[in-house]
Nucleic acid binder design. Structure first.
Length: 646
RNA sequence: GCCGAUGUAGCUCAGUUGGUCAGAGCAGCUGAUUUGUAAUCUGCAGGUCGGGGGUUCGAAUCCCUUCAUCGGCUCCA
């Protein structure tokens, strides 16, 4: 007998060799139908794997990431089986489960292409195969056997993968006629896969390397119930309505013009107001925290960027240098603010007493992003960073870093960004040539970040290879409407630029010392931040950010005089207000202004004109009753200060 | 930049296999109406069907090319 311990701490004896699926079945037959994988002693396994010794066991259902993962991974194999039967000779790359569903990278062969219009046929084949309830069979093989099998099949992608694996660790999974190199785990059979939807096809470079062949990536998602699929598709439909590109147009926030250029956003008056509100708010926070605001030009001599290392690193992703009438003189549109700020630092001598020096700028920068990467306001070629550089003594670094984490969390809380990921982005240890600076500096900086995050009890994920070329960073990622993650805030530790720019301060020993540089942004860029904000709020911005706080709706033209009085009073009280004096019925005016997401609608008619009041209707919530004009002003002010309160 | 899809009035979309197919709704402008909490009625105006080239007696529709957008990949200081 072996002892199996469950997550709640209870344990029970079972015969040796029992499977997790059988244990689930003993607990209840319904549970057996709802589990998709098992976590045995911390490792995710097939449900059908026999248990040979005392173990901890967790049965993973749909609600568990590990459960869905197995479900979708098995679905990827099911799709592969369908593809192999529909496209004989098709070759397979990799086919993992992802956050929402799965994909498989395939090479259908020269001259054969799989497009959106082919998806229904593949989907139908999958349904047909799933209905056969075929089992997923696991087999351990030697490296030689695996190599032989896939060489015979002519699957050069698989053989490349096998070549990199350790002998003795290789497993194959088969479902129907399809056999794949795979670590697993998988479902016992295709039986639970009831609802299938292939969502899109896309190109994807083999092994993520743009120098290698582009394979066809087919994305799909499956569910145990048809109803769940419908809910998922409905969610995607709803999410489209929150797309900032759509709302930006509808709400007249920003636009793009091909005549101006790709990726160069034009902020309309309403969008500019939102942007300015963000700038004003953050500026007031920065003043309180001892930041100095600076302003620097939009261009800089090309030598500045040669010194910083940016020129070499980003040669092809920058706007090319601007020549002047002078021979041999060249300037660049600034792709970042750091070098300018370093030179501001260098303009005066510094004492250890005045550090940390916090230098901030809403700096507009220009980067020549590849055309295929442009995306609404989230990826543009000109954007304004809420940039700052903290020049500190080494002994101040940790505290300074932590205080910036606090600032990011504070601002995110005010804006209700609760669902973010804090990501520690480190150097890729395999590819050190991508980075500048000594190993010693890198190790020091990476430790600084890891420890600062730990001291703040920040839940983080560590991702190697995501660091900036001059230093590691802590990035704050927030999701858009359909779940794509975007980096907003970032805090970066840099020992390298201070050396390149020969930054110094006088220590208490009257010797020159090297400061450490922290780069940081809270919003990241105003463009991307506004985009994510729009998607998170579905365009219903908080009152303090809203370009207009209210709109006055006179019942009829008879009350236009009183309405314009109210308008004047409110605007003179710094409550930006509009008036809708069209000759329309009140219902129509309410509908139109509700759709424009104006926070408060003020209905005005005979009653209000007589009593000096306004009837207040809150966007999305309906009638709130009437108020004296002065009370409404006080109400709006208190609502705004509530939003901005700690 | 790469793969795939898409591109018809300001917006959302109809326009079967090439032949009154250049349309509708909303927005806009006109008049009428003067309205009490999510769409009043009338009339008008709007597009070289993304651009360019080709096939054809004839192209929004077929072909080529180019640009842009969307979904991914790559990249993201």
């Amino acid at each position: 007998m072996i002892k199996i311990t469950f997550p709640d701490g209870t344990s029970k004896e079972y015969r040796e060799g029992i499977t997790s699926l059988e244990i689930a079945g003993e607990i209840s037959p319904r549970l057996a139908k709802a589990v998709y994988s098992a976590t045995v002693n911390g490792e995710v396994r097939d449900l059908t794997m026999p248990l040979r010794s005392d173990s901890t066991l967790r049965l993973n259902k749909w609600e568990d990431d590990e459960g869905r993962h197995a479900f979708w991974h098995s679905s990827a194999h099911l799709m592969a089986e369908a593809l192999e039967s529909l496209y004989p000779g098709i070759k397979f790359g990799i086919g993992p489960a992802i956050e929402n569903g799965f994909y498989y990278d395939v090479d259908p062969g020269d001259g054969v292409s799989i497009t959106d219009s082919d998806l229904p046929a593949i989907e139908n084949k999958m349904k047909e195969l799933a209905a056969m309830n075929l089992t997923y069979k696991r087999k351990e093989v030697s490296k030689a056997e695996a190599m032989e099998l896939f060489t015979r099949k002519g699957d050069e992608y698989k053989t490349e993968l096998i070549g990199e694996l350790e002998d003795g660790t290789i497993t194959l999974y088969s479902n129907g006629n399809f056999t794949d190199l795979c670590r697993g785990p998988h479902l016992p059979s295709t039986e639970p896969i009831k609802a299938i939807k292939l969502t899109s096809v896309a190109g994807a470079y083999w092994r993520g390397d743009e120098k290698r062949k582009m394979l066809t990536r087919i994305y799909g998602i499956t569910f145990p119930e048809q109803k769940q699929l419908k809910e998922y598709l409905d969610f995607l439909e709803e999410a489209k309505k929150r797309d900032h590109r759509r709302l930006g147009k509808e709400l007249e926030l920003f636009t793009f013009s091909p005549k101006v250029g790709l990726g160069l956003p034009l902020w309309l008056p309403r969008g500019s107001d939102v942007r300015q509100n963000l700038i004003n708010y953050l500026t007031s926070l920065l003043r309180k925290r001892g930041y100095k605001i600076v302003t620097t030009p939009h261009i800089g001599n090309v030598n500045l960027y040669k010194l910083s290392g940016h020129f070499e690193k980003y040669r092809t992703s920058s706007f090319q240098p601007i020549s002047t009438p002078e021979e041999g003189e060249q300037f660049m549109l600034k792709p970042m603010n750091c070098p300018h700020h370093c030179e501001i630092y260098n303009a005066t001598p510094h004492s250890y007493r005045e550090l940390p020096l916090r230098m901030a700028e809403f700096g507009t920068v220009y980067r020549y992003e590849q055309s295929g990467e442009l995306h609404g306001l989230t990826r543009v070629r000109s954007f304004t960073q809420d940039d700052a550089h903290h020049f500190c003594r080494p002994d101040q670094l940790r505290e300074e870093f932590k205080s910036i984490i606090d600032l990011v969390l504070y601002v995110f809380k005010i804006l209700n960004f609760n669902d973010f990921t804090a990501q520690i982005s480190l150097r890729d240890p395999e590819d050190k040539d991508k980075y500048i600076g000594s190993d010693e500096n890198w190790e020091r900086a990476e430790q600084d970040i890891i420890e600062a995050a730990r001291e703040k009890n920040l839940k983080t994920v560590v991702v190697p290879g995501e660091a900036a070329f001059y230093g590691p960073k802590l990035d704050f990622m927030v999701k858009d409407a359909i779940g794509r993650k975007w980096q907003l805030g970032t805090i970066q530790v840099d020992y390298n630029l201070p050396e390149r720019f020969d930054l110094t301060y006088n220590g208490s020993d009257n010797q020159k010392h090297r400061p450490v540089l922290i780069h940081r942004a809270i919003f990241g860029s105003l463009e991307r931040f506004v985009a994510v904000l729009i998607e998170n709020t579905a365009g219903k911005l908080p009152l303090w950010l809203s370009p207009e706080k209210a709109v006055i709706l006179p019942i009829s033209e008879k009350f236009n005089d009183y309405a314009s009085n109210v308008l004047e009073i409110l605007n003179n009280s710094d409550i930006c207000t509009l008036i809708d004096d069209r000759s329309e019925k009140i219902g129509k005016k309410i509908r139109d202004n509700e759709l424009k997401r104006i926070p408060y609608l003020l209905v005005i008619g005979e009653k209000e004109a007589e009593s000096g009041t306004v009837s207040v209707r809150k966007q999305g919530e309906g009638d709130k009753g009437s108020m004296k004009i002065g009370d409404f002003i006080a109400f709006i002010r208190s609502e705004i200060s509530k939003e901005l309160a700690d």
